[in-house]
């Protein structure tokens, strides 16, 4: 027996608050409010288009594929970078328990107009990262009569990053990029890793140096980029892996690589990190200033500074674990 289908479709009269700005016309950004009847199924992009078509044709935003693959339409909704095309509005209104939602352009890039930002600075940073495969002739035949072979495991080292659509959401969410305009940002470093991790590539050294020079160690690992990426490409994870690769490739002379070494060795030996000495371990003799400042502060409060690893009850070395992991890794049996 068939039954008539009656879909459950709601509608809410919502206030859509949109940041506006046209250079040369406005002194600074301001907000316009639009009343829109938001229906079940309506995306942020549909809402923007409805406003443009029926209320204000000068509202300016980018959009192209409408299906989460081109990366044009990234904006911030209630502060979070999202793709307008794949973001349902009704659940956001419900999550924030409000009948108003705020739409702003991405951060960390200059606004060209309303919700449109200039992504060229990011593309330039990307271009400096040598973001392309340089043929490794041990793996890639000269002739087009043959393909190069690559195992699934080799592919899996970087395949997850190839989902990146260069939408700029991670760059917008990155506080390090806000604080340091020279910092390359998550997507560019992730792309650098994508190629460096490809066994068909033969360009690791120069690209690695480009990554180090453009801030490989300036990522704070806050992991917001993982949260906002609409394609789940986990840029912060790629940055960790690129760091490992740079150390494996012999770039030891960086504060970051010294920190990695210190953490790894201390935890193996003591189960804890020697925090009091970290400034000197990481930065060499100039780290003493920080240690002295910390010492003075502690003495002021009647605490005698330590130079040793501080341990709580029962804390021990993690050497056994390290040995076992080394054994597994040396056999290439790592299941990561």
């Amino acid at each position: 027996m068939s039954e008539t289908i009656t879909p459950d479709r709601k509608s809410i009269l919502a206030n859509i608050r949109i940041q506006r700005f046209t250079p040369g016309q406005h002194k600074s950004a301001f907000y316009d409010n639009f009343k829109v009847s938001v229906e079940t199924g309506m995306t942020v992009l549909e809402t923007l288009r409805l406003i443009k078509n029926t209320q204000d044709s000068s509202l300016t935003f980018r959009a192209f594929c409408r299906s989460k693959i081109c990366g044009s339409c990234a904006v911030r909704v209630n502060g979070k970078p999202v793709l307008a095309c794949s973001t349902q509005l009704m659940p956001i209104l419900e999550d924030f328990k409000k009948e108003s939602v705020t739409i702003q352009p991405l951060r960390n890039m200059p606004v060209l107009r309303d919700l449109v930002v200039d992504i060229d600075p990011v593309i330039e940073k990307l271009s400096k990262m040598h973001p392309y495969l340089m043929e490794n002739r041990d793996r890639i035949p000269e002739s087009l009569e043959q393909e190069s072979l690559m195992s699934r495991q080799e592919l899996s080292r970087f395949d997850y990053i190839t989902d990146c659509i260069l939408c700029g959401s991670c760059y917008s969410a990155c506080s390090a990029a806000s604080a340091d305009p020279k910092y390359a940002g998550p997507l560019t470093l992730a792309k650098a890793y994508r190629f460096s991790a490809d066994v068909r590539d033969d360009f690791k050294g120069e690209r690695m140096q480009a990554a180090v020079d453009q801030g490989l160690w300036s990522c704070a690992q806050c992991r917001k980029c993982i949260n906002v990426c609409p394609k789940d490409t986990r840029p912060a994870v790629s940055i960790q892996r690129m760091r490992k690769m740079s150390i494996d490739d012999g770039i030891h002379d960086t504060p970051g690589s010294r920190r990695a070494k210190a953490y790894t060795e201390d935890v193996a030996k003591y189960g804890q990190v020697n925090k009091p000495m970290l400034p000197v371990i990481v930065n060499g003799p100039k780290g003493w200033a920080a240690i002295e400042a910390a010492d003075n502060y502690l003495r002021k409060h009647g605490i005698e500074p330590e130079r040793q690893v501080c341990l709580l009850d029962g804390q021990n070395s993690a050497e056994q674990i390290y040995d076992k992991v080394k054994e597994i890794e040396s056999k290439g049996e790592n299941k990561i």
Binding site: Q240, Y263, D313, A318, K324, V325, N334
Partner: peptide, 28 residues
Amino acid sequence: ELIQDAVCCGSGVIEERSELTSLAVNAK
């Protein structure tokens, strides 16, 4: 109640040498 025999989580830094090590110490 203090967890005895706990090991530093590695702060995400141990991953920069070995992801498996980080997982193992935290599994512990």
